[in-house]
Amino acid sequence: MKITVNGNGLEVQEEVKHIKGLIDFLELEGKPLIIEHNQQILQKEEHEKAVLENGDKVEIVHFVGGG
């Protein structure tokens, strides 16, 4: 399955079924991150329910230093 993550194309294995799976696949579990899936901002508890499909767009953002 091919999806777009943070503007870049990403080929993910078939086992990656939902956003939580993607987070694990990218080894980002436990990181303070925020996900937008097809322009829908997800709450943490929604990560496991958000099913990934071919062509989906995912934004993974976090807090960085700023004034």
């Binding site: 943070n6 980002l28 993974i60 976090h62 807090f63 230093g65 700023g66």
Partner: peptide, 20 residues
């Protein structure tokens, strides 16, 4: 404390973050 929101570098998740 103020922060900005930016894309995470997903290819280098080991990069430290001030929040940690």
């Amino acid at each position: 404390l103020t922060f900005s929101v930016r894309r995470m570098n997903i290819y280098d998740p080991s990069l430290p973050n001030f929040l940690e």
